[in-house]
């Protein structure tokens, strides 16, 4: 059985600086590898979380999947069919995205009803006379009162706007919903019901969810599987409970150690990860985490580790030379 969404060796480069200046200097034009050879699969009705620090390429992966950035190499396949940047309406419909800041991603001059109705009409989701009723149903789905349909985004609170953002994505009956830091800007008391909403939408609509976040706790709450990304590549990929209970990559372990926890006091001067990620323009040789890794050995500088399955569990993969063995033993 093929997965619903398959990302194969995805690479996205951004041209930075001046190509002419580089040619005058006799060098190739500088490319920033935002996403470097990333592969993962998403099964139907599965919820996959992508975690990583800012600049690791997690949003670029999302944008490449919905076709907002050009793919340099590799492919994104939906039901076995490769997706290109130019897509027809029917394909666009199947993958929808919810953005971080609903304040800027909603059109301020349209009421909620116009925002939703426009999509329903353009994509001919329902016959024209059923549009108002469908708008109402969408509001029910995201647990907003129908009385907000004539309202403008600026009149609504952050949580309400985010629900409109979700309703807008759901209007097209997508199979895959991509949530890119969709709760990062919300207060916890507002964030909690939105996370619950994502979970209930999955149950009720059988929606496939790709949830992108820097917040490990949030990802744990909504995902069946987690993909940990560092500097544009996948470091670890596995079932949520396993990755959280038994992280195999030193980077995953460090991220978890760094996240604030209840009932633990910060020790003076101690931190889980020292230094900062190297520049994506000047990646270290071999494993790109080795410059900050507590386990780094000679082999780590010499060769880049590939994603390797656990000897006991084919679902859990780690890109570390010592992922399944301890270097000290």
């Amino acid at each position: 059985m093929t997965a619903l969404l398959e990302v194969k060796n995805l690479t996205v480069n951004f041209r930075i600086g001046s190509a002419i200046a580089a040619r005058l200097r006799g060098q190739p034009p500088p490319d920033l590898k935002a996403v470097d050879n990333v592969s993962f699969e998403v099964e139907r009705s599965e919820s996959v979380g992508i975690v990583g620090e800012s600049g690791c390429g997690k949003s670029t992966i999302a944008k490449a999947i919905v076709g907002l950035v050009p793919i340099t190499a590799g492919s994104v396949e939906l039901d076995g069919q490769p997706l290109t940047e130019k897509r027809d309406k029917a394909t666009t419909r199947r993958i929808q995205m919810v953005f971080q800041d609903p304040g800027s991603s909603l059109n301020p001059s349209l009421t909620v009803e116009r925002t939703l109705a426009e999509l329903l009409t353009v994509h001919k989701i329902v016959p024209k006379k059923e549009v108002p009723e469908r708008c109402g149903e969408l509001m029910d789905l995201v647990e907003l009162p129908r009385s907000l349909l004539p309202a403008y985004p600026k009149r609504m609170s952050g949580g309400q706007r985010q629900r409109v953002g979700i309703a807008r994505a759901l209007a097209l009956d997508p199979e895959i919903l991509i949530a890119d830091e969709s709760v990062a800007a919300l207060d916890v008391s507002v964030q909690a019901p939105i996370l619950n909403l994502f979970n209930s939408l999955r149950r009720e609509l059988g929606l496939t969810l790709l949830f992108i976040s820097h917040d490990l706790a949030v990802v744990r709450h909504v995902s069946d599987r987690v993909v940990v990304v560092y500097l544009g590549t996948v470091m670890e990929d596995g079932p949520t409970e396993q990755v959280f209970n038994d992280p195999r990559h030193p980077y995953t372990r460090a991220l978890m150690a760094a996240a604030p926890k209840f009932g633990v006091k910060k020790e003076p001067g101690k931190s889980a990860l020292t230094g900062e990620p190297p520049s994506a323009l000047d990646l270290p040789s071999g494993c790109r985490f080795r410059t900050r890794c507590p386990l780094a050995q000679d082999i780590c500088a010499a060769s880049e580790p590939e994603l390797v399955e656990s000897p006991t569990d084919a679902e859990h993969l780690v890109a570390c030379h010592f992922g399944w063995t301890d270097p000290r033993t």
């Binding site: 800012s54 101690k270 900062e276």
Partner: peptide
């Protein structure tokens, strides 16, 4: 980011002492 936040919190705790 969490890793940098972790460093800054450790630093503040150390400076306080």
């Amino acid at each position: 980011d969490v890793s940098v936040q972790d460093q800054i919190l450790g630093l503040l705790q150390e400076l306080r002492g």
